[in-house]
Design a binder for these strands. Structure first.
Lengths: 337, 337
DNA sequence: GTTCGCTGTGCAAGCGTTTCCATGCCGTCC
DNA sequence: GGACGGCATGGAAACGCTTGCACAGCGAAC
């Protein structure tokens, strides 16, 4: 293994100078730097990041905690975060909770605290104040994405608002019989978003003086398949069928769309469907949605976190509202009845 | 920051004993161990993994290199690999190439070699012999998943075979006009799978004495959307239309299915469609497919890699053929014409 | 009663960097 | 011409663990 001393020896300088020349910290004359660089590349020297971390206290590594990697939103986040970190020369350590609350504890205590990363990006994950404080107290800044994270700096849409927005779009079109596919029943703190979106839906209905039928609120797990399954139930009754469905994610909305077609219903004539997310597939299928832009959220969170790493004092405890946009396509229209 | 000396002091032993007691390496009497454990937990001690890595040369960290995280197969792999590593107490550093060949170089040289991980799991990624040897020579075992990786130990299906299998299923049903949606044209070594599956398709056609029309071989990027786009082209001509389509991934097959319906074609009556992968959504849509089991592949690759880490001499240069299964559902049938 | 071997523990030398501090040098200013 | 400040560099002390080696204690074997 070629080490810094080999480079130092070859370049005829001390290891201190090599370190300075390669890292850019401290001053080195142009000539010396050139010699060092040459020696390093000739030997194929790559500094041991472990040793460097130990000595400097920096890791060039960010921990990203996601509930899952198989759902569109998270995959988009991971994708963009990975790209942004790569560009900045940072590694990304992935903690995939796999929708399993049991992992939470151990991930937080054993992994994140093992002092391998410089900061943490929790995605749609609600940390307790204590957990958050623990991280911050060991000097690991936290910048969250998607979902409430009281006490931390986050980039997130307002889930209540966008759900209301989607629902209001249906109401404005004249719908009165609006169903909802979304929220898990489990009141897990790990997935509060679902509940918040449901509340937004309820609030919008209430605001329009409409009833929120319990039987028209179905729980699914945010995948296309689960959207299909629930929508089959929901739309299966020929009589007393809702004229519109608001789904808490595009994936579920796509499922609902497919289920509707399967049942021989025309969208939007027989039933209007709206989702949330901005999934590319929604575009191909003509799905109306309230788009959010996870790629943008991921990129900005990384930029911000790296900034905080430069100057920790700038870390705030606010949410930077993320951009959303109502994208009206062919899956919503005035009810024909 | 509470360090090992604090624990040692509290337990009334040396740091050496603490290290041994906590890591399980070396012998410690039961009584001492108990005292150490207690002291450690009272102080909330978590060993600095950096220091531990530097001293021991082990990292408890595996590098996973994927072309993308947004496609089903990869997300399944990452998911299962993450779970398996978590169980074993390993961290996972994610290198997302993002379908960008330019990243390849830098990821390999700058990141993987920075000696942060104990081993590497490249997914559907063809390393050159030199790159592979470089990794192996610095003592980083490699266990690949999905796709050829000459010289390395891998868990992968035989892409040529499963493509032929899928095509033959159509031929057996009586189809003679079989199109293919799959392979990128780019002959990138990063995505040879696409080409291999196409060859399997061509071989099967040839074996049956059928022509492989150039215009019936469309290139897409393995997503549902691209499958839709290509299938619209392919199935858009009322005359001279293929009676069956073999797609190199379920996602593209699903896209084709949707496009067919959109065009008013009945599946499988007007056109049969088969994919590869075993995507859950395919089940909901009645898609016939040659299933592979990425979750299983990921888990096994991790198990094997950890084994190799125990005893590097057992690393072989073979592919462990991964399980596949032809799953016949409602999207394929005997052609009606 | 020695000798031997084993167990449990401590000492201290690493692991490969970074960085503080000291030093030497040169140019500038009085 | 001497003092001083700034720059480039080297020496060496961290960083916080792991582990080889030495050693004490103790029971078994002779």
């Amino acid at each position: 293994m070629v080490g810094i001393r080999d480079v130092a020896h070859r370049a005829g300088v001390s290891t201190a100078t090599v370190s300075r020349a390669l890292s850019g910290n401290g001053r080195v004359s142009a000539g010396t730097r050139a010699r060092v660089l040459e020696a390093a590349s000739e030997l194929g020297f790559v500094a041991s990041s472990t040793a460097s971390s130990l000595a400097s206290g920096r890791h060039r590594n960010i921990g990203v905690v996601v509930p899952s990697v198989a759902r569109w939103y998270y995959s988009q986040i991971v994708d963009s975060v990975a790209a942004a970190l790569l560009r900045a020369g940072y590694d990304l350590t992935l903690y995939n909770l796999n929708d399993d609350a049991a992992h939470r504890e151990s991930v937080l205590s054993e992994f994140l605290l093992r002092q391998r990363c410089d900061g943490v990006i929790p995605v749609s994950l609600e940390l307790g104040r204590d957990e958050l404080d623990q991280l911050l107290s060991v000097g690991k800044p936290v910048v969250g994405i998607g979902g409430p994270l009281p006490g931390a700096e986050t980039y997130s849409v307002d889930d209540h608002e966008i759900a209301a927005l989607a629902t209001e779009h249906l109401i404005r079109l004249g719908h009165r019989r609006i169903a909802h596919i979304g929220g898990y029943e489990v009141a897990e703190k790990d997935f509060r978003i679902a509940g918040t979106r449901r509340h937004g839906y309820e609030a919008a209905l209430k605001g329009a003086g409409l009833e929120a039928r319990r039987s028209w609120q179905l729980a699914a797990d945010f995948t296309i398949q689960s959207g299909m399954v629930e929508a089959r139930q929901l739309l299966g009754h020929p009589h007393d069928r809702p004229t519109a469905v608001f789904c808490a994610s595009d994936e579920m909305a796509i499922g609902a769309l497919l289920a509707a077609r399967e049942l021989g219903l025309r969208v939007p004539d027989d039933v209007s469907i709206i989702g949330i997310d901005g999934h590319e597939l929604g575009e191909a299928l003509g799905l109306t949605t309230v788009a959010q832009f996870p790629q943008e959220q991921g990129r900005r969170a990384v930029e911000r976190l790296l900034q905080v790493l430069q100057d920790p004092s700038t870390l705030q405890s606010v949410n930077h509202p993320a951009r959303t946009a109502l994208v009206v396509r062919a899956s919503t229209a005035t009810p024909t009845a």
